[in-house]
């Protein structure tokens, strides 16, 4: 089934900024899709259109076949959970447990059910030991995992991460990606991962490249990264490994184009031995 479907969506922020025109995109249930794009490419707008923080000017956004309108906003928000960039700006309570409970409290679940949801959400992100911890004392990665748990407590079917790793250190980013991959593979969660880290896109099943409110490239991440020159025109680079390949080739070492670190290491070793 199609989880999220943009059908000929028009959207603009008034006069200035870009205009989304006739935008279409389907995300299938259980998919892990990366949305790539430079600043101002419209990728964050995409996230906000998916849970009704913004409403389309024309066309429709459908969640599991149901067009999103002002009337079913809160039903949609239960199904599409959005995690934002800055963990500090999305936690409402000073205590982990209270923060995770927030969403579940909002929709009026009974107490016992909220307790179960907290347990489920915290163990899904590997933070069950921090239930009573103070949020401001956690690391960036831990705070962001709590933010994900806060969204998971509503048991959404689609998880949207709007540059949720952008403010984290490499370790925090890895923590979040581990959680996301596990949710996608083990729980079958549909994930839309909006990012500007190419390494993260490599882990996804499909990548969508946006530029000025339009989809300009789409396909398996490996295929997209083969079109290196085209990516550059959208101000995007290759993952670190790909960049290293290009530099080695330019420097005269004829390594093959690859995104696999072991393969690259092997071929460098072989070439140097010759």
């Amino acid at each position: 089934m199609t989880a999220v479907s943009f059908k000929n969506v028009d959207f603009s922020y008034g006069e200035d900024g870009f205009h989304m025109k006739n935008f279409s995109l389907d995300v299938e249930e259980g998919e892990l899709v990366a949305v790539l794009g430079h600043n101002g490419s419209g990728k964050s707008t995409l996230a906000r259109l998916m849970n009704g923080l913004l409403l389309a000017d024309g066309g429709s956004v459908e969640i599991f076949g149901e067009p999103l309108t002002e009337k079913n906003l809160y039903d949609v928000r239960r199904q599409v959970g959005v995690v934002f960039q800055n963990p500090d700006n999305q936690t409402v309570s000073s205590i982990v447990e209270d923060d995770v409970a927030f969403g579940a409290e909002n929709v009026g679940l009974p107490r016992e059910e909220i307790g179960r949801r907290i347990e489920f959400a915290l163990s899904a992100v590997g933070m069950e030991k921090y239930r009573d911890a103070t949020v401001s004392r956690l690391s960036g990665g831990q705070k962001q995992r709590v933010a994900i748990a806060g969204v998971l407590a509503l048991k959404p079917r689609v998880l949207v991460l709007d540059e949720s790793t952008a403010m984290l250190d490499p370790r925090g980013r890895r923590e979040i990606m581990d959680v996301v991959l596990r949710l996608n593979r083990e729980e079958g969660m549909t994930v839309v991962l909006i990012t500007h880290f190419m390494e993260e896109a490599l882990l996804c099943g499909r990548a969508v490249v946006m530029n000025r409110g339009e989809i300009v490239m789409q396909g398996a991440p490996a295929e997209i990264f083969e079109r290196h020159e085209e990516l550059l025109t959208y101000n995007l680079t290759l993952p670190r490994i790909g960049e290293i390949c290009k530099k080695l080739q330019a420097g005269g070492l004829p390594v093959p184009d690859t995104l696999d670190i072991d393969l690259l290491a092997d071929s460098i070793a072989r070439l140097l031995n010759e």
Binding site: E105, V107, G150
Partner: peptide
């Protein structure tokens, strides 16, 4: 925005 995304609609109906 984050609160709205987590279905915050004021005190009504809230547990």
């Amino acid at each position: 925005e984050a609160m709205e995304s987590r279905c915050y609609m004021g005190g009504k109906k809230r547990t």
